[in-house]
Amino acid sequence: MADRVSPEVRSRMMAGIRGRDTRPEMMLRRGLHAAGFRFRLHDRTLAGRPDMVFPRWRAVLFAHGCFWHGHDCHLFRWPASRDEFWRAKIGRNREVDQRAAEQLGAAGWRHGVVWECALKGKARLPLTDVIEACADWLRSDVPTLEIRGLA
């Protein structure tokens, strides 16, 4: 299936997609900061360059976009064009996520993932519930956290 827009327009559209300071990430950051948590952003020294690093709690949080990380929810759908390219790209993203989680765990860091579908779309959770779940997890010693939208 051919692309519906010109290569120049597609390039401009793709260039506008952010890798950091995304809307879901900003929602989490604002909520956790208001709850009294202090964190560092995008620490290059840690595997996967986590979105938020909580040194006091020895924990990191990732705000994953459902499309880019191939989440099995209503927000993810395989693109109809360039199927081989997208399957390889999203597959690599999943591998990188898995490797980063293993490396963080081996280094003694707890890691959590908040999926985009938990914060937007028809399956979203109330933001206060997401922030409260993250705060409870940070204060605990549970090794992992995953927050996803309602099924």
Rank of each mutant, 00 (worst) to 15 (best):
A2I: 13
S6G: 13
P7D: 09
E8C: 00
E8P: 00
M13C: 03
M13I: 11
M14D: 02
R18C: 02
R20V: 04
D21I: 00
D21N: 14
D21A: 06
R23V: 13
R23Y: 03
P24Q: 03
E25K: 01
M26Y: 01
L28T: 02
L28P: 01
R29F: 05
R29L: 04
R29Y: 00
L32D: 02
H33D: 07
H33M: 01
A35Y: 03
F37C: 05
R38M: 04
F39W: 09
R40I: 06
H42C: 11
L46G: 13
R49M: 14
P50R: 13
P50E: 12
D51T: 08
D51M: 15
M52K: 08
M52L: 15
V53M: 11
P55G: 15
P55R: 12
P55V: 15
P55Q: 14
R56W: 15
R56K: 15
R56H: 14
W57R: 14
V60I: 08
H64L: 12
G65A: 12
W68Y: 05
H69C: 08
H69D: 09
H69A: 14
H69S: 11
H71C: 08
D72I: 02
F76M: 10
R77E: 09
P79T: 10
P79L: 09
R82S: 11
R82T: 07
D83F: 01
E84I: 06
A88P: 00
G91A: 03
G91M: 09
N93Q: 03
R94K: 13
R94P: 02
R94D: 05
E95A: 12
E95P: 00
V96E: 03
D97N: 06
A101L: 09
L104S: 05
L104C: 03
W109D: 10
R110Q: 08
R110A: 03
V113C: 08
V114K: 14
V114H: 08
W115P: 01
W115Y: 10
C117I: 06
K120I: 08
K120R: 15
K122F: 07
R124I: 05
L125G: 04
L125W: 03
L127M: 15
T128G: 15
V130W: 10
V130Q: 12
I131E: 05
A133L: 11
A133P: 05
A135Y: 02
D136T: 13
R139Q: 15
S140Q: 07
D141Y: 01
D141L: 09
L145A: 07
R148S: 14
R148T: 10
L150P: 00
